[in-house]
Simulated scan of single mutants.
Amino acid sequence: MTKGTNGMRSHSEKADAKRARLLLKVLAGVVFVIIVAVAIVVGVLSLHEKSAVDKAVVDEKLGQMEKFIDEQKWTEAKSIGNELLDMNIAQGTKVSVYWEMGIIESYQKNFGTAIDYANKVLNISSADGHYLLGLIYTDMKKYDQAINEFTIVGQTSPMYKNTADSWIAELKKLSGSGK
């Protein structure tokens, strides 16, 4: 460093020192941005990888749950359902699990709990929730309430229209309220 006659650095040396500090700050900023970008990419890739693994696990558990339901092994089916609900699963999967849990409870005549599950379905998927409520009220022999639920389903969901109409016709026969 060259000092002038008064012991001070020259203007060009000061400017060079400022440029060097500025360059270091810019480089540090660039390095920081690169590190953050790498962390984001790694995080996204690990989430993608995790969701792919979770989907396979979820699908396997749903299959096991359905098998236990078919075998009328209610405790085992509910255990798997609760495991699934403890996982971070998609809303559509929650509908499936709540649906199956509601069916299990209805089969076991635990109608209050079955209705609770149906209401959870209802909060996610209106048509599915009303349809499940219709099934539960049918199991409870509350045919007028079941007809109301199936009527809502038929009016709001083309997917369920024909099935809902069939249920309504059958329930009217059972309740003696029409053909």
Rank of each mutant, 00 (worst) to 15 (best):
78 K>F: 02
78 K>C: 10
79 S>A: 12
79 S>E: 13
79 S>T: 13
80 I>F: 04
81 G>T: 00
82 N>T: 12
82 N>I: 13
83 E>V: 12
83 E>Q: 15
85 L>P: 10
86 D>H: 07
86 D>C: 05
86 D>Y: 05
88 N>P: 02
88 N>I: 06
89 I>W: 03
89 I>M: 07
92 G>F: 01
92 G>T: 02
92 G>H: 00
92 G>S: 07
93 T>K: 10
94 K>F: 07
94 K>I: 06
94 K>Y: 12
94 K>R: 15
95 V>G: 08
96 S>Y: 00
96 S>T: 07
97 V>P: 12
99 W>Y: 13
99 W>S: 11
99 W>V: 00
100 E>H: 03
100 E>R: 10
100 E>T: 06
100 E>Q: 10
101 M>P: 01
102 G>K: 01
102 G>L: 01
103 I>P: 02
104 I>T: 10
105 E>R: 00
105 E>A: 09
106 S>H: 06
106 S>T: 04
107 Y>I: 09
107 Y>A: 15
108 Q>G: 07
108 Q>F: 11
109 K>L: 11
109 K>A: 15
109 K>N: 14
109 K>Q: 15
109 K>E: 15
110 N>A: 12
111 F>P: 08
111 F>G: 06
112 G>Q: 13
112 G>Y: 02
114 A>T: 03
115 I>A: 14
115 I>S: 13
115 I>M: 15
116 D>V: 10
118 A>E: 01
119 N>R: 04
120 K>R: 07
120 K>I: 01
120 K>L: 07
121 V>E: 02
121 V>P: 07
121 V>M: 08
121 V>F: 01
122 L>N: 10
122 L>Q: 06
122 L>P: 08
123 N>V: 00
125 S>F: 09
125 S>N: 15
125 S>W: 09
126 S>C: 07
126 S>N: 15
128 D>A: 14
128 D>W: 09
129 G>Y: 02
129 G>K: 02
129 G>C: 08
131 Y>A: 14
132 L>I: 00
132 L>P: 03
132 L>V: 00
132 L>Q: 05
